[in-house]
Computed example of a mutant assay.
Amino acid sequence: MIRKINFQIILSLILFVTVSTSCANRKTADEDDAKHGDILKGQLPVIVDETLIPIVKEQVDVFQNSYKESKIQLIGAPEVKGINLMLQGRAKTAIMTRTLNEVEEDYFKKKSVTPKIFQIATDAVVFVVNDSRPDTSISVESVLRILKGENIGADYSLILDNVNSSTLRQLKEIGKVEKISSQYVKAMENGDEVLSYIAQHTDGIGVIGYNQWLNAKRSFKNIEKIRTLSVQNSLTKDGDGKFYRPNQSNLAAGLYALSRPVYILNYQPDMGLGLGFSAFVTGDRGQRIMLKADLVPATMPGREIIIRDKVE
């Protein structure tokens, strides 16, 4: 009788511990879910190439207004710094004008993370000058010569938005320029500083992103003192050698020589908010925001046509 009672007591204790442990594990899992969220709720840090901050802010505003339980924190940075922050673990989602190279990608492969990468728009590198300058156009070859330190005889100097920016990286890749010369090149901290310099000086050609220029047309107080240069379409064998302004139609037609893709890079290992935000930006609503902002969406959003049987 005594053995039977002892066995019942032990069995009861085992069941109690099992149930308690199960509840504790469930609570921990629920806390983790609350912390990391799912595809439509939770918190998400996103590293953004600072040349793309204006359009990404628009996307985030609409997304958070639609999904109240989501909170997206944008971390703006020049491209080189942004990639480094990603590799340091500051965020697993980023919006950039390039994908990661093999060395950078290897960091995530070691963690067995399969990325979800989507193109979301087309942007461009834009050259801006003071409106009092007589110049209306420039060739990419001339810009590359200035980068290399050559005097092209027209009182030109390049005003860069940042030495770590995506705009400079693109120009260096095109011209296979290993090292830029400081003789005719000045580096600022960001695109706003470039615009301020160009508005006050006539000796420079500013280098910024197309989305930065679109935003400046709405918000920069001295915008009337600045204009864009047309760029010669001569980088490829299919180029016609003509000069084209940076605008939505020329980007869409592939006529502007310095266009560039915009990607959302999602390296979250699970079905998190990064995937939900990616789906929004690549979906119909997100692509309409790109179109309305005068960028070129990766996929053209559909048009809704209402047909009525009779007119009232």
Score class of each variant (00 low, 15 high):
residue 4 K to E: 10
residue 8 Q to S: 13
residue 14 I to W: 03
residue 15 L to E: 08
residue 18 T to I: 15
residue 19 V to Y: 09
residue 22 S to R: 07
residue 23 C to Q: 11
residue 37 G to P: 04
residue 38 D to C: 08
residue 39 I to N: 11
residue 40 L to Q: 07
residue 41 K to G: 10
residue 44 L to G: 06
residue 53 I to Y: 03
residue 53 I to N: 04
residue 54 P to F: 05
residue 58 E to S: 13
residue 61 D to P: 00
residue 62 V to Q: 13
residue 64 Q to L: 07
residue 66 S to W: 09
residue 66 S to I: 14
residue 67 Y to N: 15
residue 69 E to F: 06
residue 72 I to S: 02
residue 79 E to G: 10
residue 86 M to C: 06
residue 86 M to P: 05
residue 89 G to E: 12
residue 90 R to P: 01
residue 95 I to T: 03
residue 103 V to S: 14
residue 105 E to R: 07
residue 105 E to N: 05
residue 106 D to C: 09
residue 107 Y to Q: 12
residue 108 F to A: 05
residue 108 F to W: 05
residue 112 S to P: 00
residue 124 A to M: 04
residue 132 S to Y: 07
residue 136 T to W: 02
residue 138 I to Y: 04
residue 138 I to W: 05
residue 143 V to Q: 04
residue 145 R to I: 00
residue 147 L to H: 02
residue 149 G to T: 11
residue 150 E to P: 09
residue 151 N to K: 13
residue 160 L to Q: 11
residue 165 S to W: 00
residue 165 S to R: 02
residue 169 R to M: 13
residue 173 E to I: 09
residue 173 E to D: 14
residue 175 G to D: 10
residue 177 V to Q: 08
residue 179 K to E: 08
residue 182 S to C: 05
residue 185 V to Y: 06
residue 186 K to W: 06
residue 188 M to H: 00
residue 191 G to C: 08
residue 195 L to P: 00
residue 195 L to F: 05
residue 200 Q to N: 15
residue 200 Q to K: 14
residue 204 G to I: 02
residue 212 Q to T: 11
residue 217 K to E: 12
residue 217 K to V: 03
residue 220 F to W: 01
residue 232 Q to H: 02
residue 233 N to Y: 07
residue 235 L to N: 01
residue 235 L to G: 08
residue 242 K to H: 09
residue 247 N to A: 07
residue 249 S to A: 13
residue 254 G to D: 06
residue 257 A to R: 00
residue 258 L to S: 02
residue 258 L to I: 01
residue 264 I to E: 06
residue 271 M to N: 13
residue 272 G to N: 04
residue 276 G to F: 09
residue 282 T to M: 12
residue 284 D to R: 09
residue 285 R to V: 14
residue 288 R to W: 08
residue 290 M to S: 07
residue 291 L to N: 14
residue 291 L to I: 10
residue 295 L to P: 08
residue 296 V to S: 05
residue 299 T to E: 13
residue 300 M to N: 06
residue 303 R to Q: 11
residue 304 E to W: 06
residue 304 E to S: 11
residue 305 I to F: 11
residue 309 D to G: 15
residue 310 K to N: 14
